[in-house]
Amino acid sequence: MATDPVTPQAPAGPGARREWPLWEVFVRSRSGLDHRHCGSVHAPDARLALQLARDVYTRRQEGVSLWVVRADDIVASDPDAKPELFDPAADKIYRHPTFYVLPPEVDHM
């Protein structure tokens, strides 16, 4: 499946081209934390996307900063390529600190 997770397949039916484009919304819940994906909104432009994202996703002080990104600008990895992409890390346990057995006196390092 090559479709992007956040881009719906071409909508069918009359008037489909009149639909406002889709934007993905990212919220920083408080300073010191990363922006996190929280959902999507439809909006005609970036300014309104921010405004609508504020109304839809931060009605209870859920955030101090918002990002909006056009959904069709997001490039995502192919889920069918998951094994090639991510499995090679599985057998490299020496990349983790727990791989190394140290004497108890120094084991806190």
């Binding site: 719906p8 397949q9 039916g13 008037g15």
Partner: peptide, 9 residues
Amino acid sequence: ETLGTSRDE
């Protein structure tokens, strides 16, 4: 919409 339908549909 993530399932491939559109809001307008």
